[in-house]
Design a protein around this nucleic acid. Structure first.
Lengths: 218, 218
DNA sequence: GCCTCTTGTCACTAACTGGTGACATATATA
DNA sequence: TATATATGTCACCAGTTAGTGACAAGAGGC
């Protein structure tokens, strides 16, 4: 209980080292946020963790982004671009010959991205678990990226008129997403050993069979 | 700072009210755990919350179940039975006429359960998000229940020999699961407005089309 | 040189988590 | 009836979270 415990002059506030630069700091924070989400997942994502990873005081998150929600919004914009890049990279997109080919290509790309990019997995997982609606921006980003890829690649291809293409496509995309998600934690999805690489070839074949038979004109 | 603040004789330990009965208490705890999981979901599930809901000190959870993991194990056994009951209830299971009919029936039952039972949703969500492996018991319970229903209902039906039935079925079950899960938080899955009741009819039709075309002998 | 705004850091609160040791009391046993 | 054990409660621990108010110091305008 000496008098020095509350002597106000002792606050030295270690000098900020790297010069003061708000845009750079905001970028650092966003990059740290993306890294945290990638490596720790939604449950590890928070103001404290992001600030710690960015090497910055969390107060700045409140000042620059308006708190948790604002940070999520900014991250959403960043991830929208990220999704577009991931979808477009890889094979040079040889034009599909049928609507079924188009959806099959989409499914293959989705499998590749979700299996190789942890960030994609964590985003999907976050969208499923969040109830506050704050993560809606992330879901919108991915949905928009998928739509853009479709519009860009489909050309003039049309599904057979008697098939409910949106519903079929939702089932395909959802099925792929769920299998990859479940593989992250269990290695056995619905009786399929997803830790075996051969299983993924079977899954791609199953997708091919489902899509081609669904969209074949009867 | 009077002397009564640490006088040891003041610990009165309010009388336990309801008589001491370990089996009953264990049941109370498990019921509370199930209720918490149903209403709050995985993120709200914890020793403190369960003890609070059960009106019991959390110390008993450690004594009777050996902590968090043990509680999960016991809850898993309870939920295995729960899944079997949910799968068997409802329509009296008119025997399917084809393997496709069988899978279609399974998908319909799964949609009904996941849409009407929050507990089913939260279980699926928990399985996807847990990384510690502690929730594996829950996944095993559901998987086993699905398998039992299949074995019980399929009779002698066989899929066409040239189709990879396990992979196809995994895609169907996964697709249905993901769509219902995503509907919980967003109301718009992959461009489908899942908050509209008519959409679910479209989804069931899509499942029917996918399954019947996949399992029709070519 | 002085003054103001911005950038950054520190220190704290209140609430929560999983987990543990000590205590009180009802019940069964000797 | 005395004693041991099982059951239940309380109080705390160290660690975490989201969020806020106060302070220090660089940067630019006058």
């Amino acid at each position: 209980m000496t008098s020095d415990e509350d002597s106000p002059a002792e606050r030295t506030a270690r000098p900020p080292e790297r010069g003061r630069d708000r845009p750079a700091t905001e970028r650092r924070i966003l990059e740290a946020a993306q890294a945290i989400l990638t490596e720790e997942g939604p449950s590890g994502f928070g103001v404290n963790a992001v600030a710690r990873a960015a090497g910055v005081d969390k107060q700045l998150i409140y000042r620059y982004f308006g708190g948790f929600e604002g940070l999520l919004g900014a991250l959403g914009e960043r991830l929208a671009q990220w999704w577009q890049d991931r979808l477009l990279e890889g094979a040079p997109a040889t034009p599909p010959e049928s609507y079924g080919d188009l959806i099959e290509m989409l499914a293959r790309r989705l499998i590749r991205i979700m299996r190789t990019e942890p960030l994609a997995l964590q985003c999907a997982l976050w969208e499923l678990s969040d109830t506050s609606g704050a993560v809606a921006a992330l879901a919108a980003a991915r949905s928009q990226a998928l739509g853009a890829w479709m519009a860009r690649t489909r050309g003039t291809l049309q599904p057979p008129p008697d098939v409910d293409a949106p519903a079929i496509n939702a089932m395909i995309v959802s099925g792929v997403s769920y299998i990859v998600l479940a593989n992250r934690t269990s290695g056995n999805v619905v009786g399929l050993a997803t830790d075996d690489e051969a299983t993924w070839i079977r899954i791609e074949s199953a997708v091919r069979l489902l899509v081609q038979r669904a969209y074949r004109v009867a």
